[in-house]
Amino acid sequence: MNYDAYFTELSYKTLATLTRYMETFLGEEEAIRLGKQLLDFAAIKLGANPLQFPVSHELETLGIVDYRVVLVDNYKILFRSDEKARVSYVMAFLRQKQNTQELLYQITIL
């Protein structure tokens, strides 16, 4: 089940925000390494079989059922899949405790 994994502009923005935030705790080098690891992980896992990951429960409660989430360590990768085109679109990188609904709200008002 090979899919192409694409990273949206928003995914890069949220990854940059996450990396800057984590610099405080990890230092610059480790935060950059974390960002690269999350990108690599997303490309590999979403390229192999994105449908193995569940629908985002946080967004499902709002009636949004086309976003899925990958949990990896203390982080979340939010994505959508186009099964016909066999493409996964990475939408955002977040800390695991970060509120996905709040992120969606912030994006909507910008």
Rank of each mutant, 00 (worst) to 15 (best):
L46Y: 03
A48L: 05
V72W: 13
K76F: 07
L10S: 10
Y67I: 06
E30A: 10
S81D: 12
D73A: 08
V70R: 00
A31D: 09
E9Q: 11
V90G: 03
F25H: 07
R68H: 12
P54N: 12
L71T: 11
Q37H: 13
L71Q: 11
F93M: 06
L38K: 05
L15A: 08
F53Q: 08
F7H: 03
R95P: 04
R68F: 05
G35K: 01
L94T: 09
L59N: 06
Y75S: 04
V55Y: 02
A85Y: 08
E29V: 03
Y21W: 10
E23H: 05
K13M: 07
P50A: 02
F25Q: 07
F93N: 01
F41A: 04
I64G: 05
L59K: 00
A16W: 06
A16E: 13
V90L: 00
A48V: 11
A85V: 13
A16Q: 14
Y89P: 13
L59R: 00
A92L: 11
P50D: 09
F79C: 08
A42T: 12
K45W: 06
L10Y: 06
G63F: 00
A16V: 13
R20K: 11
L51V: 12
K84G: 13
T61V: 15
E29R: 12
V65S: 07
F41N: 04
E23W: 03
L38D: 03
K76R: 14
L26E: 02
A48W: 09
L34A: 01
A85I: 13
N49D: 15
S81E: 14
Y12A: 09
E30F: 11
R86T: 15
A43D: 13
K13W: 01
K13L: 09
G27R: 13
T19W: 00
E28M: 02
K76M: 10
F41P: 02
S88G: 14
S81K: 08
T8A: 06
V90A: 04
Y21D: 06
V90I: 14
L39A: 07
L38G: 09
L62Q: 09
A16R: 15
Y67M: 08
L10I: 14
A31Y: 07
H57W: 06
L18C: 05
V72C: 03
E28I: 05
T14E: 00
L51W: 04
Y6L: 13
A43P: 06
E9S: 13
V72Y: 10
L10G: 11
I44H: 00
T17H: 02
F53D: 14
V87L: 10
L18Q: 03
S11A: 15
T61G: 00
L18W: 03
I77Y: 04
A16D: 10
Y67D: 13
D82Q: 09
L38E: 02
I77G: 04
G27P: 14
Y21Q: 04
N49S: 14
E23T: 06
F25R: 08
F79M: 08
S56Y: 02
